[in-house]
Design a protein around this nucleic acid. Structure first.
Lengths: 309, 309
DNA sequence: ACCGCTTACGAAAATCGTAACTATG
DNA sequence: CATAGTTACGATTTTCGTAAGCGGT
């Protein structure tokens, strides 16, 4: 019996698929299949029922997985206790919301490349809801996205509270004005599409305030929304820090609202059953970079100004 | 990190010697040394201090061993839960007292050879005290010997209570006599040597009875003692079952004593920290054969009778 | 000089991935 | 016919034992 076999069996059961488990362990499906077979062979009992299309774990398999995770946890702890510098290798697929991609991600990638040269990172940018589902399925190792999410059974660690505020092109909103529910119900609001954490937050806010917004433009791309807002197509709620340069350059004006738009908590989202060093270490790095990273975009180039008529 | 590495580190620390640990794991010292080095290399810290002659575990090494044993126990349990038939392989060195060697051992060896053809057994016959020390040192995987022993830190599982009685050649003791302390203090008693469990029991018995035996012949070989007793050189206390054929053939006569000689508990002796399947399974077999095995020797050949003058 | 551990090296075995294959829905 | 898992097979890698080496007592 080897640790690799136990690992293979455990993840195959947790993720419900040989293929996804193989991906996660950075081996081919053939290798994973063989490891599981070896384990079955040694134990002399079937761990999976292969009669159907998918391989379903048997009762024995499930019991084994429960014990296997204890073994794997212990082994991970041994490494930690011995003060191993956690040299991560292989491929790590993870998800980020667009705000994260445009602010924390670059520093994060630099940090990881510096500390773990043999780890290949594959960031995947999408809306929070999509990311969460992919983490649940095991297609992503983790995600950084605004919460609260819809999926249960995910571990969420607060990374940072991100302040949002309403924004508009300066000529679209009275200089000293305050955004009231009344005004809002008549204005065009540019939101992200449904799966987005921002939109979820917005919907909740409207519900609580009793506001019904009539005209919305929904777009799945935050950068585009900023562009549309700068172009004067409507109001939007945007991360304050993220749009700081726009405000500084006079492209956007933050608008006070009553009540103010709530800040949004960004989380490091991972599977509850995922005790891997990979996840633990990268979680730490995300926290590290979230405190300092600035947006990578400088808004306010010539073209933008030309659009802004 | 592999299970083999953890196993190597654990036993090297428990047994205090690479060489003995290697023996126990059925690998060469070179292999064990390399496994430990690989582990140290991966963890990036020393597990042993090699400055002296022996390799002494470092603090980190000791902590690792504590966690490693948990891992190994769990893995063993996984095998058990999955209903593995425990195919034992390699070499197993174990000790038996002479009584055991001449009664239970043959059936035990047959049983093991039948159920585990790939396991090579190396029985080693010696006195209980010697066996115990070798188990402590790790030179023997286990021993079957009469208790109570001297060594602490050994696990003792009762195998069987063995009845003893005083024996003498028929013409050396009055037919209907009863052995009294008085008589005993004047008679020649044939005992085993000091390290023997029988002798320990005898010494204890004398102490409690307040008997001081003046003339003793001490021999380290039970079969020889039987022969000496048959030859009429003195009294001895022998396992009742073991000498049954002698009594039947008129070579020995059991002598009632007041108080009677206590029975002796034979134990399966193993290290407290030894959770291996090997030990667990063989312990079961010993219990199995101890209930049925008869002595392999038939006493009473012609030569013996000639001696008995 | 002996004992205990390490190193060097070659043989044997295991591991792993590509690609072809089978079965299910 | 697309998806999920298995099998075949060859190449790389790992593992292991022999034998020599090395340092400490």
């Amino acid at each position: 019996m080897t640790l690799k076999q136990l690992e293979a069996c455990y993840w195959a059961i947790q993720l419900g698929s040989f293929a996804i488990a193989a991906d996660r362990l950075n081996v081919t499906q053939s290798t994973l299949s063989k490891r599981i077979f070896e384990l079955e062979d040694e134990l002399g009992c079937l761990l999976f029922d292969r009669s159907g299309k998918r391989a379903l774990p048997t009762e024995t398999g499930r019991r084994l997985a429960e014990m296997a995770v204890q073994v794997l946890d212990l082994v991970g702890e041994i490494g930690r206790v011995a003060g191993r510098p956690s040299e991560l290798r292989g491929v790590c697929c993870f998800g980020v919301s667009e705000m994260v991609a445009l602010t924390w991600l670059p520093k994060f990638l630099l940090l990881v490349r510096e500390r773990h040269p043999d780890l290949l990172l594959r960031p995947y940018v999408d809306l929070a809801g999509v990311l969460e589902r992919k983490v649940v399925r095991g297609e992503l190792d983790f995600a950084v996205a605004p919460g609260p999410g819809r999926e249960q059974d995910l571990r969420r660690d607060l990374v940072k509270e991100v302040a949002f505020s309403w924004m508009a092109a300066p000529d679209r909103f009275p200089e000293a004005g305050v955004l009231t529910p009344d005004y809002l119900s008549d204005a065009t609001v540019i939101t992200m599409t449904d799966e987005s954490g921002l939109t979820r937050s917005f919907d909740g806010w409207c519900l609580v305030q009793g506001i019904r917004v009539r005209k919305t433009i929904a777009c799945n791309n935050l950068t585009t929304i900023v562009g549309l807002t700068i172009a004067g197509l409507g109001l939007s709620f945007l991360p304050t820090a993220f749009t700081e340069s726009c405000v500084r350059n006079g492209l956007l004006r933050p608008i006070e609202s009553i009540p103010s738009f709530p800040s949004l908590n960004y989380h490091f989202i991972s599977r509850l059953d995922d005790q891997r060093d990979l996840v633990r270490v990268l979680r730490g790095y995300i926290n590290e970079v979230a405190d300092f990273a600035d947006p990578i975009l400088e808004w306010g180039g010539g073209n933008m100004n030309e659009m802004n008529n």
